[in-house]
Nucleic acid binder design. Structure first.
Lengths: 147, 147
DNA sequence: TATAATCATACCAAACAAGTAGGAATAGTA
DNA sequence: TACTATTCCTACTTGTTTGGTATGATTATA
């Protein structure tokens, strides 16, 4: 039960775009700053496409930008898209797939745990993460400026 | 991000043992009732051994029993043992494994989400699940007894 | 001695994760 | 027009993990 790199990198990409909203940002730039391969980022962008949160410009001087304000981008959507069905349990999503689901005492457990994360993620947006990102950057710089 | 069968079956095993505390229960019995292979259950039992929640008796008429009261068996321990490190993130468990962890805005996210689950699981015990199991069985029987 | 159970370990096939690779389409620039 | 930098598309590869099977030893009872 680990978090995939697609989700981790996808979040980093979106935070980067959210924190740098002037003009287009190339995947190359993100790749260098976040230490990810461009090719892998391209794949991640493809997966994110259906969410319609990215504007892309092709060709020279092209790149990406968020098409919505970061506070409109819910982490729940990102998780669901990049992590398959996050915390998916067949007996929860597909009732009937487990013959004992009627009397299965663990089923409620999965429902509860899923609800726990859904509740959390639906409250959070990319904007929350961008704020932290900027705060951290700020601190980093001020630390560096000290002797 | 799915829950492994080891964890699912392990829970079912422990619930079964918790609900049937008279004498030894063989893996064969659990396997038949819960529709799992005996050999696979043997593996799961091996993984659970370090937790010291099981008494085993070898030989003919042998079997397993819980060595603690179900309410003393925390789901958190079961999850951690059967699911590797549940919701593990290197950057959280092994600070320094991620070069950017100092300014990484997603790290807090993983910490929060992990805490959400840990908090939930530490409160819950096998006893909670056993109760539901027995309640369900009860209902099932009373339903069957109706015309 | 036969049988029924746990215990120990090795093996295996399929799925998945994490990326690489090659190239086509597009658009600005010299 | 040719060059370059980018997104877009799709296939491939490689290693790890999952979900088991298989074989057999050990132990205890009848």
């Amino acid at each position: 039960m680990k978090v995939s790199t697609k989700l981790k990198y996808g979040l980093k990409l979106l935070i980067y775009l959210g924190a740098n909203q002037e003009g287009n940002i190339t995947l190359k730039e993100v790749a260098e700053k976040e230490n990810i391969s461009v090719k892998y980022l391209e794949q991640i962008v493809t997966i994110l496409r259906p969410l319609q949160i990215l504007n892309s410009t092709r060709g020279n001087n092209g790149g990406y930008a968020l098409s919505k304000h970061p506070k409109e981008i819910s982490l729940f959507d990102i998780f669901n898209t990049l992590e398959g069905n996050f915390f998916e349990m067949n007996c929860v999503e597909l009732p009937g797939s487990c013959t004992s689901s009627g009397i299965c005492p663990t089923r409620d457990l999965w429902v509860d745990m899923r609800q726990l994360y859904v509740g959390y993620l639906k409250e959070k947006t990319i904007q929350d993460l961008v704020k932290k990102y900027k705060g951290r950057k700020q601190n980093e710089y001020s630390n560096l400026s000290r002797p």
